[in-house]
């Protein structure tokens, strides 16, 4: 299938902004950001210098979106395969250039033509369809919370695990892997919030604190996922949302 370069140029135009232009222009190619990047620190290849992640974006801009499939494959490799968007490099950059911001903009180009890497795409599909990126069911969610509450209650008989309680101070969201792989984390949250006497609740909707849409560079999906957390918080009339990661 041929690459939809029109789509790429449209996305490019939509992503263009004051920060993007400024940062592309003033990068001094000094390489000081390399000290901050865990990719470069563990494997000091030139391609692992943070500023190198801007190359594909420059290339697409120079070609006004009209790039070859091979170049697009290289772009996907660079911006998904060699950057976790952790922003550490920004702390080392004299100009304060936000590489992650531009990597995300570049990822949007891949998203626009359906080239989100498979693993990420399936996690995102899960999140959109099931409300969390690991396809955890409502039963599994509640059972795991109940189970961990029982564990906590062995030490703290008074401990409670409110779900969907309205009007409390904090609505707690977390990573779905806490249900699937690390239920001990839920134990810790429960113990902590109960010991603190925090006025909190879990929520049956919008409880996945990860935003795979944001990470994938898919703005529409990112908006949907963030919107669910906001909607849950508004429905429960809480004062704040706590995100555990």
């Amino acid at each position: 299938m041929a690459l939809d370069t029109i789509k790429i140029s449209e996305t490019l135009a939509a992503k263009w902004g004051a920060r993007l232009g400024m940062w592309l222009e003033i990068c001094a190619r000094c390489g000081l950001c390399a000290k901050g990047c865990h990719f470069f620190q563990s494997d000091p290849r030139p391609e692992h210098v943070p500023a190198y992640r801007l190359k594909p974006l420059r290339q697409v801009l120079a070609a006004k979106g009209n790039i070859s499939e091979a170049d697009m494959a290289a772009l996907v490799d660079t911006v998904y395969g060699t950057c976790t968007m952790c922003q550490r490099c920004t702390m080392y950059c004299p100009h304060g250039i936000n590489i992650a911001f531009m990597v995300r903009a570049t990822r949007a180009l891949a998203v626009s033509v359906g080239l989100t890497p498979k693993g990420l795409a399936s996690g995102l599909a899960n999140a959109l369809e099931m409300g969390n990126n690991l396809s955890i069911t409502a039963e599994e969610y509640q059972e795991t919370l109940d189970w961990q509450l029982e564990e906590v209650q062995e030490e703290m008989p008074e401990a409670a695990c409110p779900v969907d309680q309205e009007g409390v101070r904090s609505m707690v969201t977390f990573h779905p892997r806490d249900i699937k792989f690390y239920p001990g984390n839920l134990y810790s949250y429960l113990k902590l919030y109960n010991a603190m006497g925090e006025d909190f609740t879990f929520t049956s909707q919008g409880w996945d604190s990860t935003n795979i849409g944001l990470f994938a560079g898919d703005d529409a999906a990112a908006g949907t996922l963030a919107g669910r957390v906001v909607a849950a918080g508004e429905r429960l009339k809480v004062q704040r949302v706590v995100t555990a990661e």
Partner: peptide
């Protein structure tokens, strides 16, 4: 090498 790889005529 890491700076060399970034360098272009503009620099």
């Amino acid at each position: 090498p890491e700076v060399k790889a970034l360098t272009s005529a503009g620099d």
